[in-house]
């Protein structure tokens, strides 16, 4: 007996747009407690765009772009010795909102030295530059989305917001993902730092749980005994929808 079926192609799934960004877990543009945002924040509503190829593609980097020591901030600027300070590993996974690891994506990091001073011509803080510390590193995630850096734990530093404002120790991180719509810059803080709760930049984030996701716990399991402690910091970029569509041949 033949079963009568409508003559239609089967439904299949293909990767579609990236999930709508949840703006409630990000800082809004205008956050008067962080004074510089006052004149640098757009006042009109963002225009929500349905994604096209322009948003769903983005730059792809390969290993040729990176040098051998780029991910090792203890060695990548060492001149006549190693930098001063607490030796640490920062490691974790870059994944999307569905928990899927993002392979071969570029992670860049920058930070102050152990005394809280940046190697930057605009930084005039009195703590000294460390001659053996540059303060920047970069790496590509592996096939599972795993990344790691070796570095020195940065110190807190004063900044011009209120008279007595100090940034909690932090590492700035820049992450790509496969699409330009996932582009993200954030800051990682360290478990136990009393400056986190009172920082005007941390407090631009309106959601307490979201703030917790920026605080890296110490991870003794990943430490190197007698050498280096570790902090674990997972990074989540926007996830992606699957689009259901009828599997027609091209041109139909």
């Amino acid at each position: 007996m033949t079963i009568e079926r409508p003559n239609r192609p089967a439904m299949v799934r293909k990767p579609g747009e990236y999930f709508q960004r949840d703006r409630d877990i990000h800082p809004p543009a205008f956050t008067p407690g962080y004074k510089t945002s006052v004149t640098r924040s757009p006042q009109k509503a963002l225009l929500s765009l349905e994604q096209s190829l322009s948003e769903m593609t983005g730059p792809v980097f390969n290993h040729n772009a990176l040098g051998e020591l780029d991910h090792d901030m203890i060695l990548n600027y060492a001149k006549d010795g190693e930098p001063i300070g607490q030796r640490i590993i920062v490691h974790g996974r870059v994944m999307d909102e569905s928990g899927k690891g993002i392979p071969h994506t570029l992670v860049e990091a920058w930070q102050a030295n152990a005394g809280g001073r940046y190697r930057h011509k605009k930084d005039t803080y009195l703590a000294p530059i460390d001659p053996n510390f540059g303060g920047c590193g970069r790496c590509l995630t592996d096939e599972d989305g795993y990344y790691f850096f070796r570095t020195i734990k940065p110190g807190p530093y004063p900044w011009r917001n209120y008279i007595n404002s100090w940034r909690p120790a932090h590492i700035h991180l820049s992450i790509f993902g496969p699409s330009f719509s996932q582009r993200l810059i954030t800051q990682m803080y360290f478990e136990g730092d009393p400056l986190i709760d009172i920082c005007p930049i941390v407090k631009t984030i309106p959601d307490e749980d979201a703030i917790k996701r920026l605080i890296a716990p110490m991870d003794l399991n990943a430490s190197v005994p007698l050498d280096c402690r570790a902090y674990k910091f997972d990074i989540v970029l926007r996830g992606r929808r699957s689009t259901l569509f009828e599997n027609r041949l091209e041109g139909n």
Partner: peptide, 19 residues
């Protein structure tokens, strides 16, 4: 069970060091 996106923080004045 979705994960939430890592929140953004300003690139700050010293973005050039890293990037």
């Amino acid at each position: 069970n979705y994960f939430k996106e890592t929140p953004s923080q300003t690139a700050g004045p010293y973005v050039h060091i890293g990037l």
